[in-house]
C-alpha cells in the first residue's frame, strides 16, 4: 500500500507516468467515469479549505466513486480530543482512501503509520502540499513542455507557503533548474530547504527582495499569498501582506512565454487585470488539480480504466 505524504514519495518516473495519465484524463474524461465505482474517498479536513477539498471530491466523483468526511476540526472527533492515530484507524473502516488536511505539520505522516488505507497529504500546516505540487508540475509541463532547464521565480510568502516547499523539493530533482526566491526577509524560504534541498543539490539560486528586477529572467513565476492563518501576530501579517502585487505593468517586463502560476486563493497579490493575460495559468492549474488528483487516486487504489 502506498501513501502520498511527501512530494518525494514518488520517483521522477512515477510522476511522469502520473502526469501522462492526468493528461489522458483531460482528453478522455468519459473513459475514466467508472473506474472507481463502489470506492469511497474520505476527506478529513481539520482546517478550512475550499479548492483542495472540492478538487478531491470532484476527482473522486468524476471517477464514479463517492465521498464522505468533514470540513472543519469542529465537526470531527478531534474537537473531543481524539488523536489522529485513532481517527485514521476508524476511518480505515469506512473508506478506501483518504485525503487529510491538518494544521499540524506531520499529521498525515502520523496517520499513514496507523492507516489501513492509502493516505494523501492534502496540506499539513506550513510544511508540505504534495498534491498541489502535482497540479503545479502538470501545468508547468503543459506550458513549457518540460520540467527541467527552467528558471523558476517563487514570490511572496516563501516561509510558511507549503506549496512553495513542496514545489522546490520536487523541481530540485530535474536538470537545469534555477530558483529565484523573491520575498521580504521575514518570509524567506526556511533554512533547511536552502541548505539541504537547494545547496544540497548544487542548484543555482538567488534570494531577492524585488520582483521587478528579476521578472524578465523567469520562465515560470509562482506567486503566493501571505497567509493570515500562519501568523501568531496579526501586526506582522498586516505589515507584510501587501509586499508583492503582480500587475499588468510588471508583466510587460516578463518574457512573452513566461507562465504565471498561483496555488490560489489569491487576495490581492495578482491584480485582476492580469487574468486576461494569456500567460496567466492559474485557473488552468485549478483544472489540472482535478485531473492529477484523479490520476493519483487511481494510482493509489491500483485501478485502471476498463
Amino acid at each position: 500500500m502506498r501513501h502520498l505524504i511527501d512530494p518525494l514519495d514518488f520517483s521522477e518516473a512515477e510522476i511522469e507516468k502520473l502526469l501522462d495519465v492526468a493528461e489522458d484524463i483531460a482528453q478522455n474524461l468519459k473513459a475514466y467515469s467508472h473506474v472507481c465505482d463502489g470506492k469511497k474517498l474520505a476527506t478529513l479536513f481539520y482546517e478550512p479549505s475550499t479548492r483542495t477539498r472540492l478538487s478531491f471530491e470532484s476527482a473522486m466523483l468524476s471517477l464514479g466513486g463517492s465521498v464522505l468526511g468533514f470540513a472543519t476540526a469542529d465537526s470531527s472527533s478531534a474537537a473531543k480530543g481524539e488523536s489522529v492515530a485513532d481517527t485514521i484507524r476508524t476511518v480505515s473502516c469506512y473508506a478506501d482512501i483518504c485525503a487529510m488536511r491538518h494544521p499540524k505539520e506531520g499529521a498525515p505522516l502520523r496517520a499513514s503509520r496507523y492507516s489501513r488505507i492509502p493516505v494523501i497529504n492534502a496540506g499539513d500546516g506550513g510544511h508540505q502540499h504534495p498534491t498541489q505540487t502535482l497540479a503545479d508540475l502538470m501545468t508547468i509541463r503543459s506550458k513549457k513542455k518540460r520540467l527541467g532547464n527552467l528558471t523558476i521565480g517563487l514570490c511572496g510568502d516563501l516561509k510558511f507557503g507549503r506549496t512553495v516547499h513542496s514545489l522546490i523539493k520536487s523541481l530540485a530533482r530535474y536538470e537545469g533548474i534555477q530558483f529565484v526566491l523573491i520575498s521580504p526577509e521575514e518570509l524567506q524560504v526556511p533554512d533547511y530547504i536552502i541548505k539541504e534541498v537547494i545547496k544540497g543539490n548544487d542548484i543555482p539560486y538567488e534570494e531577492v527582495g524585488s520582483l521587478e528586477e528579476v521578472i524578465s529572467s523567469l520562465d515560470i513565476l509562482y506567486m503566493t499569498r501571505v497567509q493570515k492563518e500562519r501568523f501568531f501576530n496579526e501586526e506582522d501579517y498586516i505589515r507584510l501582506k501587501d509586499s508583492y502585487i503582480l500587475t499588468a505593468n510588471k508583466m510587460r517586463r516578463a518574457k512573452p512565454d513566461m507562465a504565471v502560476l498561483h496555488p490560489l486563493p489569491r487576495v490581492n497579490e495578482i491584480s485582476i487585470e492580469v487574468d486576461e493575460d494569456p500567460r496567466a495559468a492559474y485557473f488552468e492549474q485549478v483544472q489540472n488539480g482535478v485531473y492529477v488528483r484523479m490520476a493519483l487516486i487511481m494510482m493509489l487504489l491500483e485501478v485502471t480504466p476498463c
Partner: peptide, 8 residues
C-alpha cells in the same frame, strides 16, 4: 506547529 505538540 508540529503534530508532536498535540498528539497523545
Amino acid at each position: 506547529r508540529c503534530i508532536t505538540s498535540i498528539e497523545e
